[in-house]
Design a protein around this nucleic acid. Sequence first.
DNA 1: TCCCTACCGTGATG
DNA 2: GTACATCACGGTAGGGA
Length: 819
Amino acid sequence: MEINFIPIDYDYFDWQGKNYAKIIGRTEQGKSVCVIDSCPIYFWAILKQKISELKIRQIQQKIEKIKIKSPSRISKVLKTEIHSKKFLGKSVKAIKIFVTNYKDAHAIAGKIGMKEINKRREYDLGYITKYIIERKLKPLQWCKIQGKILNNSQKFGFLDANLNVDLVLEAEKISETAQKNFSPKILAYDIETDELEIGKGEILMISLVGENFKKVLTWKKYQTKLNYVECFKDEAEMLESFVKYVKEYSPDILTGYFSDGFDLPYLRARAEKNKIRLNLGIDNSQPKFSRGRILTGKINGIVHIDLLRFIRNAYSQYLKSETLSLNEVAGELLEERKLKFSPLEQVKLKKPNWEKFFEYNLQDSVLVYKLIQKAWSDLLEITRIIQEPLFNISRNTMANNFEELIIHNLHKFNEIAEKHPTHEEIGERRMRPKYEGAFVFQPIPGLYENICFFDFTSMYASVIVSYNLSRSTLTQKKNKTDLYQGELDRKKIYFTKEQGFVPELLKEIIIKRKQYKKEYNKNPNPITKARSNAYKLLANAAYGYQGFFGARYYCVEAASSTAYFARKNLKQVMEQLKKQNFDLIYGDTDSIAFKLNKHTKKQTLQLLNKINKKLPGIMELDLEDFYKRGIWVTKRTGEFGAKKKYALINEKNKIKIRGFETVRRDWCNLARQTQNKILNLILTTGNEKKALQYLKQIIKQIKKREIPLKQLIIRTQLKKPINEYKSIPPHVTIAKRMQEQELPIDIGMLIEYYISETENKKALVRERAKMPNEKGKYDIKYYLNNQILPAVENIFEVFKINIKELVEGKQQKKLGDFN
DNA sequence: TCCCTACCGTGATG
DNA sequence: GTACATCACGGTAGGGA
């Protein structure tokens, strides 16, 4: 039997002491298939230099005798082979040690302590990772599989009989085939409960949304006109029906939002309470939760995706949303929001508005369903590039993905994989002091006209490639003719010029990114965009990866040298611009802002071209944009220009604001909006007159208490448990109060408060902080002096206007128009 | 008690 | 609590006058 097959979910099991991979996927016709397969299990013992062949033979014989007994099996070394390999770029001789069961590889490696053996490696790779590398059955990539059908066969203990799939195949031959698109069957779900703590309350309803499929399941007896609502006798019956519907729909992917941390564990807890099996798995197994720092829910045969985690890891830095709540993210990506409804208030009512409740519950699943449609091409693309299962890809950080990309490509370099750092190694790495990072140019405050911005494309990644910065290229040699000279803690360090595998893989990524970006610009569609985006995300992760204490290929020398070469190149370009009589305004890490002065745009671009020709390796300087006007301000403390704070207007009148309070969520809306408006007015008109008028009007409104409280709410995130705070800022005080009132508080929550007036004028800010629903008068002085003034003071200072007097009202009679 | 400053905490930039 | 360093700024804690 031969089929075209796309692998979706991976799992493995033991049969008679041996490991087997169990891969769930589909045929072109959409039939669900389970493929059973296996691969040799081995790890490496890397030999020291100059060991005699006789000695190696003796070591092999010793190793081949190793046996390990565990309660469930006897594991042993099957055979050994000698190979010429590379480890960290250096040629080595290594013994390939084949074992019966991968779970014992670690223990067997522990028994190999001969003094001739330098290192043992690859006993810490996961079985699925090894399997994918060995058998090239790559996630979400179409392939041809020849094999034997298992039909109620005794083999594997009647495993096929308990699988809800159309076909079970034992693979014999796997071969490549042309790639086509793949649209998985997706089901989104969401639950509503009357208590937030997992399992404490009851699940009131569950919504399910798929293609031409929508349901709300509930046990609240209620007559409804909504045809998608189904009512059940009790919670138990509803849960059983949920399982039934999921199985009938037979999705490839079951997805929720924060469902790792809430929906799935809640369902599991309530099923237990009701003594029901939540047998969602394709083998009728229940969801399994891995107890890491963060809960992770896995369902056999169905890829459970917590979309929040993917969005956080892949998209968050590119989103404008201030929180990653479903409401905000959907608002930004879909221009659609959650229904306005407050479930936790409703459940406290005697007669909740069930009709609205059902609609609200359904809408959440609708949003998740639409969001994953948007994310799908990225998920598919990243999965195909990294070659790890979708379940992992959807939860991995980008640094994590980068490491797995390396692991899956090592065979191209004949490299043996480096191991994970041990606890002690991680501890040491974390102890080391910080290395010098990016260069930031000290701006001179002012309003500038005719500005040009250049920036380096993927600067850090292109530096790593151009200077060959990595663990395997770091060298002790000091023969300066064929080495790159980097820096760590002001000491010189060296990298060979012979290309290392990390820079080479990164180079491929950058080249593909450029290629796909071109393709996208020519032919903009979700696929080309996703491809281009996926490569960009990966390239950006490479620098952080090498400086990350948990990385297999950690190399602080490479990380610090990356920053060093970036500083050097940025400063060099700055010098060139200065020599050509451009006035520098600003620069940060990989960007440069300067005044055109008497130069034309054409001349400027010609210079850009000239600079590019001299840049090392694949480094590239790009035109970011031309701007009509821009403003840089002083720091609140000190007379110097503030870094990382500026605002620009381009020739299409598009405004770009960086670092100002306007873009910071921990300032009240009034301060943010006032500042935004003032920056807008100044940038569009080129002077401060209208802005000043506007400010006066706002100040008047504050003093007359005309500002609605909503505009004055300050939001600050609670980042750790309350008792871990050394000093107690206002938002922690409020969090404590909320806790006392048994309001739900959680790490990561945005705490809202406003500052009220009190008798005691000297009270600390936190003593004046009140929850939004607490009665009180907002403190006029606080909002003037601590919110509005700091937000606008430095902007007007550019025009030599002292706002302080205006705000405090010292000269109010003179200025006349408010009191 | 007042005043100053170091440090904490958050959230930006790139 | 798991990619990096740099920076601004409000607020508190705590010591010295």
